[in-house]
Write a protein that binds this DNA or RNA. Structure first.
Length: 259
DNA sequence: ATGGTGGCACCGCCA
């Protein structure tokens, strides 16, 4: 079978219900990982997912962060948060779907390089590496996806020289991400698009004409351990979804695997 | 040029 997984930073799931329902109906992925749901669990619009044939598990809070995994099959082994303090349950959700463990994260953005929040981001990535090492093996199938809030390489931002002190492209953030990659992940999108510049998943609302001028960032990712990455058959960014009515500032990233 | 837009909170915070 072809196993199709997608990731999407919704920037409020309640604001994005029509867009997400339409996208799920047209694309029918096995799994959609969502970040920045921005809703407390009792108010999560689970019925909107059921209407288009999806189960959904989630953990959120008021106003910020929040993660969810929607899937056609019932998810197994669902858990929330890191395995060290603070758990940050609204930033990490894990589930097994069709036998494949999936970790969906909304990595802390970090605000500015000199802030405590940036130090927290770097610690968070280091703790996430430990989480993978304690709970999984790079020899087993595993998908890590989500808004990782890091553009890994120069090719992944529109102006690498100017953005070097941005929290999503700072050398320390890139090094922290590389440490996790070295544990045993392959960047599935890049595997299918080597040396293909201008492939972005996020265009800042605040930059005038950002999408048209392609002033974007590739900060949303689908990574897989080697045994699974070797089975990936395609990966693409759905740029059209960023042109929808009331779009998120991010768009959908999709990958397919032959299982 | 320390803005701009968008979302959700509530009268600012986060991205």
């Amino acid at each position: 079978m072809i196993f199709k997984i997608a990731t999407y930073n919704a920037n409020s799931i309640r604001s994005r219900i029509p867009l997400v329902q339409d996208w799920l109906s047209r694309n029918r992925p096995d799994v959609l990982c969502i970040q920045e749901t921005k809703v407390q669990d009792p108010d999560f619009p689970r019925e909107a997912f059921a209407e288009v044939g999806y189960n959904v598990v989630f953990r959120g809070q008021k106003a910020y962060a929040g993660v969810a995994i929607a899937s056609r099959e019932e998810p197994e082994e669902v858990s929330f948060g890191l395995d060290s303090e603070p758990h940050d349950e609204a930033r990490l959700i894990r589930a097994t779907v069709h036998g494949i463990p999936i970790v969906n994260t909304y990595v802390p953005q970090g605000r500015s390089v000199n802030s405590e929040m940036f130090a927290y981001k770097l610690e968070w990535l280091a703790r996430l590496r430990d989480y993978f090492a304690r709970n999984f093996s790079p020899a087993q199938p595993l998908i890590w996806c989500g808004d990782l809030n890091v553009a890994p390489e120069e090719i992944d931002v529109h102006n690498p020289k100017r953005l070097v002190n941005h929290v999503d492209f700072h050398p320390d953030a890139r090094a922290a991400l590389a440490r996790i990659r070295e544990w045993g992940f392959i960047d599935v999108f890049r595997r299918h698009h080597p040396d293909d510049p201008g492939q972005y998943t996020f265009w800042d609302y605040r930059v005038r004409g950002a999408l048209e001028r392609n002033l974007g960032w590739r900060v949303d990712h689908i990574w897989a351990t080697k045994p699974l990455a070797e089975r990936s058959t395609a990966a693409w960014i759905d740029r059209e979804a960023r042109k929808a009515e009331r779009p998120s500032d991010h768009t959908f990233l999709v990958a397919e695997f032959e299982l």
